[in-house]
């Protein structure tokens, strides 16, 4: 009895949490796409500032990580493929796994660590310092002022970062291909292009956009739900990271399944 009760309570909490995410996302989407046409201001300069922080400043670390992930993928693929004397398939294995899965996923992990956590910390600190309250008494809507610029920056920059990560991953795979599998740059790129289809790349980027969306929603929601006292900010930040990773994996599972079912055969 107590057990089923607690499952019930956990389910309701979970649904309430997802409801909160949906409300934040809806509010932010409205502030970005609808309110500007009703004469309300959108904070474009804040969005650009966020886009720099989320996207441009993440380029070095994303490049490095995805280059190595590409190389690791190539090594693992080669380990299996060389048994069949099929090392020439390494390029396509890297290209497909990178664009469909690991490019978006590794980018999401980087973005969670850099931006999702900082959203929670920023909003959490503002909550603790009564800045959010102050904002409300000044008739400034925290969602359109704080969340909307992050939302826009994330749905644009996470796919861009992902596209770059895909490219760096291919380079990483190529580095292995050249060193250990008798490829030349020309033949490696050639093999990659033959393996890639637009559908794989686009579904990967679409997924990345969804990741950007949930990372924003979770980070901001954790920030807004920060309790009293500054030690709560640390708790919010940690929980934003953990919950974002979980949410990204869930979104990944669902969207990959949908893409599989709707894919051209």
């Amino acid at each position: 009895m107590a057990f089923t009760d607690s499952i019930g309570a956990a389910t309701i909490d979970g649904l309430a949490y997802v409801g909160g995410l949906a409300r934040l996302t809806g509010g932010a989407a409205k502030a970005v796409f609808i309110s500007p046409f009703q004469g309300k201001r959108f904070h474009m300069s804040r969005a650009i500032h966020q886009a720099m922080a989320v996207g441009v400043e993440a380029l070095p670390i994303t490049s490095l990580i995805s280059f190595f992930i590409g190389a690791i993928l190539a090594v693992n693929a080669a380990y299996e493929l060389r048994k069949f004397g099929a090392l020439h398939l390494v390029a396509s294995a890297v290209a497909v796994s990178m664009t469909r899965e690991l490019g978006p996923l590794m980018t999401a992990v980087v973005v969670i660590g850099r931006s999702g956590s900082s959203f929670a910390a920023e909003i959490g600190t503002m909550k603790v310092n009564e800045e959010i309250d102050a904002m409300e008494t000044m008739a400034l809507e925290p969602i359109s002022f704080l969340v909307a610029p992050k939302f826009l920056a994330m749905i644009l920059m996470v796919p861009c970062l992902t596209a770059w990560a895909d490219f760096m991953g291919v380079l990483g795979g190529g580095a292995f291909g050249l060193a250990a599998a008798s490829f030349t740059w020309g033949s490696y790129i050639q093999a990659t292009l033959e393996a890639l289809i637009a559908h794989d790349i686009l579904t990967g980027l679409l997924k990345a956009m969804f990741f950007g969306l949930v990372i924003t929603a979770v980070g901001c929601q954790e920030g807004f739900s920060t309790g009293l006292g500054s030690e709560q900010v640390g708790r919010s930040t940690t929980s934003a990271v953990v919950k974002s990773i979980f949410a990204v994996v869930m979104v990944d599972l669902v969207s990959t399944t949908i893409f599989y079912l709707t894919a051209p055969r």
């Binding site: 920023e122 009564e130 800045e131 309250d133 102050a134 904002m135 008494t137 000044m138 008739a139």
Partner: peptide, 16 residues
């Protein structure tokens, strides 16, 4: 609220 001003006990200035 545009016709209301509030000064908080802690100040609540925007730190950024």
């Amino acid at each position: 609220r545009k016709g209301i001003g509030m000064s908080f006990q802690s100040g609540a200035l925007f730190g950024s």
